[in-house]
Design a protein around this nucleic acid. Sequence first.
DNA 1: AAATAAATTTAGGCTTACCTAAAAAATTGA
DNA 2: TCAATTTTTTAGGTAAGCCTAAATTTATTT
Lengths: 225, 225
Amino acid sequence: MASKIFDMFSLSEENYLKAIFHLENSLKSGVSTNALAEEMQTKASSVTDMVKRLSDKDLVNYKKYQGVKLSQAGREAAIEVIRKHRLWEVFLVEKLNFNWDEVHEVAEQLEHIKSEKLTNELDKFLDFPERDPHGDPIPDAQGNFHISNRVLLSNLGVGETGICIGVKDSSAEFLQYLDKHDISLGKKIVVIEKEDFDKSMLIKLDDQELRISSQISANLYIKTL
Amino acid sequence: MASKIFDMFSLSEENYLKAIFHLENSLKSGVSTNALAEEMQTKASSVTDMVKRLSDKDLVNYKKYQGVKLSQAGREAAIEVIRKHRLWEVFLVEKLNFNWDEVHEVAEQLEHIKSEKLTNELDKFLDFPERDPHGDPIPDAQGNFHISNRVLLSNLGVGETGICIGVKDSSAEFLQYLDKHDISLGKKIVVIEKEDFDKSMLIKLDDQELRISSQISANLYIKTL
DNA sequence: AAATAAATTTAGGCTTACCTAAAAAATTGA
DNA sequence: TCAATTTTTTAGGTAAGCCTAAATTTATTT
C-alpha cells in the first residue's frame, strides 16, 4: 500500500473511489458514467467532472465515452476507505450497542478520518476482525481481503445445509426483516423445500421452520458445510 | 440543548463556533475579527465572510466593526463540538494507546462526526469521563461543564500542596516536557522554594525534587488540598 | 482635532463540487 | 444503413470558503 503523506484525498474523491470499486466488483467490468451517477446519487455531468479530476491524479484510467477503471493507486485508496468503514462498523456494533441496521450512516462519516495510527489501533482494539457486522470481509493493513468461498442461499439445493455468513443487501429494511425472523450471522440453515414456481424456500433455522421468498434467499450469503 | 435535526453545520462553521467559544472564554469579551483570524489561521477578510454567514443563521451576534458574540444556539453548537472532541481524546488515550500529545489532530477530525447516538454511547462506553487527557472538563449531554476550582501552579506559595489536574498549554512540546519529567495528571506537587527574580520554583514530585521555570508553572492547573 | 496607524470590510477572483441545458458521440433497431 | 434513442460530454452557472488588494471605519497620537 502506497504511503499516505498528508490528507491525500477529499471526502468526495474518496466516495467516488469507493463507489467505482464496488461497481467494478459487481459489474465485473469498467464503470460507466451513468452507473456511477446512479451509485453516487448525482448527475452524469458531475461524474464526468470528477472523473476527469481523478484521472488527472492518476487514480483512475479514463477515456472519453468509455467509462473508468481504478488504477492501482485508486484501488489502494478505495480499499483503505472500505477497511476503515468496516472496522468502524464492528466498533459501533460490538462496543457501542449499535444494531447492524444503524451503523452504515455513521460509518460513512468515520471512514474518512485520516490517521493511520487510529485505523491500526482500532483494528488491534477490535482484535483484528475479519468481517464486519454484515459479513463483509475487512481488508488488512496491507489491503488484502480474506476471501472465503461463499454462495447465496438461493443456490443451495433441498437438503443442503450452511452457515449464514453475510448479507448481499445491507439495507436497514432487509436487516430488520432478518432481525424479526431471528436470522443472524452464524446461524445454521437447512433447506427443506424449494418451490420451483417462485423460488421460495422452506428453511429450518434453530428449531423453527420458516418460508422465505427468493428475494430473501438471494441476499443471504452462506458457507456450506 | 436544542435538538439537532440533520447535519446542521458545516465543518468550517463548527470550527469557527468552537474558536469563538474559546476566545470568548479566554478574552472574557466579544471576539474581534483579527483575533478570530489569528485563531483560525486565516485572513481577516475570510473571517468577515464567515461571520456574516453565521450571523445570518443566528449562531452569532455580529455588528460591523464590533466583533462577534455567540448566540445561545451558537454556544450550544460549540459546546457539542467540544464535548465530542474531548470524549474522542479520552477514547484515543484510554482505548487506543495514544499519548496525550498525539490526540489533538485526530480529535479535530472526529469532533465533526454527526450522530447523537454515537456521542452518547461513546460517553457511556468511556464511563462518563469528567475530564479529557489534558484535564479539560467534558460537558455532559446537556452541555453543562463540571467546573472545579483550579489554580495555576504559579499561584501557589511556598509550602503549599496540590494535585495536578490539567494543562493550560496543551501543545505537544509542553506535554512531552511533562512526560520527560514525569509530571502527569493526578500527581501531588509540593512547592518547596520560589525564586523572586524569575518566578522559577523548586517542587517536590513523588520523591524527586525538580526545578521548573515560570513558563511551566504558569501552564499547570492544580487543585489545592 | 487632525493626521496617522490599525482594524475591518468590500470587491473581485479562485477552486471544488455540484447543477441545467445543449451538443456530440455511441448504440439500437427498423 | 441510417434514423432514433441513449449515453456522455461540454458549456456555463451556483454556493461555500478561501484569497489579495483596495476602500472604509475606528483607534491612537500628537
